[in-house]
Amino acid sequence: MTNSLDDARCDTVKRLFAAYLAQRPEIVDAMLAPDFTFSSPRDDHIDRKSYFEQCWPKEKTFRDIHIEHLLADGDDVIVGYRAEKMDGGSFRNVELIRFAGDRILEVNVYFGRNL
């Protein structure tokens, strides 16, 4: 059973992905905690400035992002998704998104395989 905080955090994650797909970093900036960090196999605890410089595409890269799994557990939300690229390729990833209150404190991306 979920509670209202879990639902709110899942909604924030959905908005995060929608903003990423729409290339709207200004929407996401307001969602992030001041000491936000991002990690992936290519990035190790980079700060928010580096996150926007390195991780946000300069041109439209994704046709769609389908959230397949979304689960809140305390301060963490786990999201599994399939991304469809503009070039026709697709892949799956899983992210662990940690919250501090109503803001995203940390994102950890685990890369999946190409489909």
Rank of each mutant, 00 (worst) to 15 (best):
T2F: 09
L16R: 09
Y81A: 07
F91H: 07
D11L: 00
D44E: 14
P41N: 03
A30L: 05
F111H: 15
I104W: 01
G101I: 10
V107E: 15
D7Y: 00
F111C: 12
K60V: 06
L70P: 10
R92P: 02
C55M: 12
F91I: 09
L70K: 09
L96T: 09
I67Y: 07
E59Y: 12
G80W: 03
S40L: 11
D7G: 02
F17M: 00
D6S: 13
G101E: 10
V79Y: 08
S90C: 08
F17L: 01
P57I: 14
K14A: 04
T12S: 10
K49Q: 13
D102L: 04
P25F: 01
H45V: 02
R48W: 03
G89W: 07
Q23T: 06
K58H: 14
V107D: 15
V77G: 01
E95M: 12
M31V: 00
I97R: 01
D87C: 08
K58Q: 15
A18G: 02
V13Q: 03
L16D: 13
F36C: 00
F52S: 10
Y20F: 11
G101N: 10
D47H: 11
K14V: 11
D64F: 03
R103N: 09
I67T: 10
R92M: 08
D44R: 00
K58D: 15
Q54I: 02
N114G: 15
M1T: 12
R92H: 11
L21W: 01
F62G: 06
Q23V: 03
D11G: 03
S90N: 14
M31C: 01
L105R: 15
E68N: 11
L5C: 03
A30R: 07
I46N: 05
R42Q: 10
P41T: 08
E26K: 00
F99P: 09
R82E: 05
D102K: 02
I97P: 04
E84P: 00
D64G: 08
G74C: 02
M86A: 11
S40R: 04
E26F: 00
K60C: 02
D87T: 12
D87G: 12
L16S: 06
L96R: 14
V79T: 13
Q23C: 01
P25R: 08
D35N: 15
K58G: 15
L105T: 07
P34E: 03
E68Y: 04
S39I: 04
